[in-house]
């Protein structure tokens, strides 16, 4: 029974990791580079959400929607500043790396300069913080995280697999040139993908802020998303989903057994062994170099 309780907590945590990993993987699958600015977008949107909430006393739902929009705009700006010119010049993939890492640090540093490194906390959104479901005690935040993650992921899957835009994005992840020949405006599709990724990042950022505390160090959580996408198979959308859930459950059990401080060590060891045994990830499909 105790372990079932842990499992529920792990799934709630894992669903947030899944959202981070999905935002990261969306960019990875179309542009084939690891977007390290994702963490910066998470932090900045979480702080903007806090600012809006404390100024205008918004309801939780309004705040989430607004934050997603802000994250999308922010991500589009990052795309415009960091990658637009590189893409037009068909630059080496290494430059994308450096550009995204730099933008990530700069975004985090903007927050440090504006708010200093002090901790902030969102107001308590849910009045009874815990509910009893049968024999389990579940925090309402966890339930909301799980619920909203399911909604967001369903929405994303719908867009990716049932709409024309989704087909364009998935085609782009296979071959840019052919997509261009088919008459799809690649720039627009890439911009929209960045916006989707930014919205996911913003939602995840707010969750991390609610669940822990609002600090500029929040961008550390993007590493969890990256780990999750490694476990799931880099560049694979459904893999990112499973990887996030696996990582969440794993972390909760490790923390239960060895304490929170050593969790990064054990997650690292686990992912090393996992990569040795199954480098292609859970989903079994990863992006490979083509000639």
């Amino acid at each position: 029974m105790y372990y079932l309780q842990l499992l529920i907590n792990g799934l709630a945590l894992g669903s947030v990791y899944s959202i981070i990993a999905l935002g990261f993987t969306l960019i990875y699958s179309i542009l084939k580079f690891s977007n390290f600015s994702h963490g910066g977008i998470m932090v900045v949107s979480a702080y903007i959400a806090y600012e809006l909430q404390s100024r205008f006393n918004l309801s939780f739902a309004t705040m989430m929607v607004l934050t997603a929009v802000i994250g999308a705009v922010l991500s589009w700006m990052v795309q415009f500043i960091g990658f637009e010119r590189l893409r037009n010049k068909k630059s080496n993939i290494m430059l994308y790396f450096v550009s995204s890492a730099t933008l990530g640090i700069v975004l985090q540093n903007v927050v440090v300069l504006t708010y200093s490194s002090t901790f902030y906390a969102y107001p308590a959104f849910f009045k009874p913080p815990f509910v009893n479901l049968g024999q389990f005690t579940v925090s309402v935040t966890d339930l909301m995280m799980l619920g909203i993650s399911i909604v967001v992921i369903t929405l994303l899957m719908f867009v990716l697999y049932k709409t024309r835009l989704g087909i364009a994005i998935r085609a782009l992840s296979m071959d840019t040139q052919t997509v261009q020949l088919m008459g799809i405006n690649v720039s627009v599709v890439i911009a929209v993908t960045f916006m989707m990724s930014g919205a996911l990042g913003a939602v995840a950022g707010v969750f991390c802020g609610i669940n822990y505390v609002l600090t500029p160090q929040l961008n550390q959580y993007v590493f969890k998303g990256m780990m999750a996408s490694i476990l799931g198979g880099l560049g694979n959308i459904s893999g990112a989903l499973y990887g996030g859930l696996l990582l969440g459950v794993l972390e909760v059990f490790i923390t239960n057994a060895f304490g929170a401080g050593l969790t990064p060590v054990f997650t690292f060891l686990f992912s090393m062994i996992f990569l040795l045994v199954r480098p292609q990830g859970i989903s079994g499909k990863i992006v490979l170099d083509k000639v």
């Binding site: 690891s34 990064p264 060590v265 490979l288 170099d289």
Partner: peptide, 23 residues
């Protein structure tokens, strides 16, 4: 594996080392 894996795994290694030393 692809280059990205080295970037991400070393990132995890960095975190793990700091956590290990702190604990």
């Amino acid at each position: 594996l692809r280059r990205d894996y080295i970037a991400l795994i070393t990132l995890g290694f960095g975190e793990a080392i700091v956590a290990l030393l702190n604990n």
